[in-house]
């Protein structure tokens, strides 16, 4: 059981910044995100796009903003559970919360902060018969630990950056055989990655199959082969794993079952402190709604600061904390 003062559901920019604001008040945070990396939309959808409305940064790449936030919160040593979706939230008799992820990881905390953005990033699943049967039995939609593919035969499907990057990475001394299957013959990934894929295909390091799709999965109790539908013929290929990487899309998911007041897939909050209808649960960033809400990173940062003040009073009803600027004590070490 992982114990913390605050569990933050969602490691997007607003969830990350909450660690800082909570840290100034000496509250320890643990972040949980269904993505294998922190950064939410900034990392998943537009890491290489510049943002122009972060105060103090005339221009900053979304990916760099996340790197900076990670650096800013590092001194507070937050815990991370990545690649797992929060499934269950239960209030205990002592008013603490019990939180369980889809992988069964158990957490307990005093306060929950939902910074879940547009919802849980879930993989787009291809329409192939028996797909769900083979999930975790040879079919993986996100790669959390690439070394699980050590010495194995892997088929990757997709034409975007993550399909290209993982195919290149796994073919470089990890998997025993890597096949990349794509529906077209042009790719969406970065030019350098596309060039590398073609080079590796020419040198026989990657088996590249274009204008083709995986049509069927076979295996008794785990995946052993795939049927590929190509332009001219169908053929079968032996494999230990199939990793379809068709991008991720946010879905509200389990949040709908937690008894929170929702309005069009967003959580209603009190703008005094961004608290929800359940005492001890707050919602900040893109996931919340209130009159005048703007889905901007800077709004989420502001919400996070006010929320932490209220969370402190909730966790430590007798605790005294006078408001201080970070400059006054010569940096965060003084807090």
């Amino acid at each position: 059981m992982i114990k913390s003062d605050i569990i933050i559901i969602g490691a997007g920019p607003c969830g990350l910044f909450s660690v800082f604001e909570a840290g100034l008040l000496k509250m320890r945070c643990h972040l949980i995100d269904s993505l294998p990396q922190p950064g939410g939309q900034c990392s998943e959808i537009y890491p290489k796009k510049p943002i122009y409305d972060i105060p103090g940064f005339p221009e900053i790449l979304a990916g760099d903003l996340i790197k900076n936030l990670m650096k800013q919160i590092a001194p507070f040593n937050p815990g991370f559970t990545l690649g797992e979706r929060v499934e269950i939230i239960k209030k205990q008799s002592d008013d603490s919360f019990f939180v369980v992820t889809n992988r069964g990881t158990e957490h307990s905390c005093r306060v929950i902060v939902i910074a879940a953005g547009l919802g849980c990033f879930e993989p787009r699943k291809p329409m192939v018969e028996n797909l769900s049967f083979f999930e975790d039995k040879g079919v993986d939609y996100i790669i959390k630990d690439p070394f699980k593919f050590k010495g194995k035969k892997v088929v990757v499907s997709g034409g975007g950056d993550s399909a290209l990057d993982w195919a290149i990475y796994l073919a470089d001394g990890i998997a025993s055989q890597v096949t990349l299957v794509h529906r077209r013959d042009s790719f969406r990934g970065h030019v350098e990655s596309v060039e590398k894929i073609h080079k590796m295909s020419n040198s026989g390091k990657i088996n590249l199959i274009t204008n083709a799709e995986v049509q069927a999965l076979k295996g008794a109790d785990k995946l052993t082969s795939l049927t590929i539908k190509a332009e001219k013929n169908n053929f079968s290929i032996e494999t230990d794993y199939w990793v379809p990487l068709f991008g991720l899309t946010p879905k509200l998911g389990p949040i709908a079952n937690w008894g929170l007041n929702l309005n069009k897939n967003a959580i209603e909050v009190n703008t005094y402190d961004y608290s929800t209808n359940i005492e001890g649960i707050y919602a900040i960033g893109d996931i919340n709604t209130y009159p005048g809400k703007l889905k901007l990173i800077l709004s989420g940062f502001h919400e996070s600061a006010l929320m932490c003040q209220s969370a402190f009073k909730y966790i430590f009803p007798n605790g005294k904390k006078s408001f201080k600027y970070t400059t006054v004590l010569g940096g965060i070490e003084g807090f």
């Binding site: 329409m127 529906r183 068709f246």
Partner: peptide, 10 residues
């Protein structure tokens, strides 16, 4: 747009 659509399975 073409590249994004090509990446989708549907």
């Amino acid at each position: 747009e073409e590249d994004m659509l090509n990446q989708l399975h549907n």
